[in-house]
Amino acid sequence: MIRTKDLTFKYREHSALFEFPDIALGAGENLLVLGKSGIGKTTLLHLLAGLLYPTGGSIVIDKVPTQLLPKKQLDKFRGQNIGLVFQNNHAVQSLSVIENLKARLFFAKKAISKNIITDLLEHLDIIDCKDKKLRELSEGQRQRLGIAMGIVHRPNIILADEPTSSLDDDNCNKVMQLLIEQASVSNANLIVITHDQRIKPLFTHKLEL
């Protein structure tokens, strides 16, 4: 459940004001946000993730008005309820695959279950590299680790920032299938922001910025 109203943001006092259309997603509904670069896609994603405070308007996630939370509580809320999947920086370099997932659960203040982690790694087909560091993984493996990092803690909302733009068609389809599948398994909202036209047919709800 996510609802935004009259959401605006500006980086500095005199810089341009971003104005975003209202979003209203019920349980389990997915959204594709399309737009050219520089139009504020990532800004919107960061606002929804609680990485930025909006200049105006409101964001309500599962009945919690996140823009009103103090910084530390917002960190906690983000850790527990939001899963972020990035285009490139998928995990912490100094930690191995399994340590990354443990750290993700630790910061989300959720129980660290080895079974959940192994099941997920098996499902994403990266169980063989569980003890490898990020730099030892292939691009495809990294992307899958990125997805694992976004969903291991069973978030209510999965936010993906250009998850497919550096992938070929084959991998693009696999990644999107995994994301949509994992979102529906945990009944989470999946919001993907992209300029990648290939994934347009996969979504019923779309928003053009």
């Binding site: 990485l51 910061f107 203040k109």
Partner: peptide, 14 residues
């Protein structure tokens, strides 16, 4: 490791 630290913040680290 600014990216790593920022990532950890995005994981919920304060």
């Amino acid at each position: 490791r600014a990216f790593d630290l920022a990532l950890m913040r995005s994981y919920g680290a304060n």
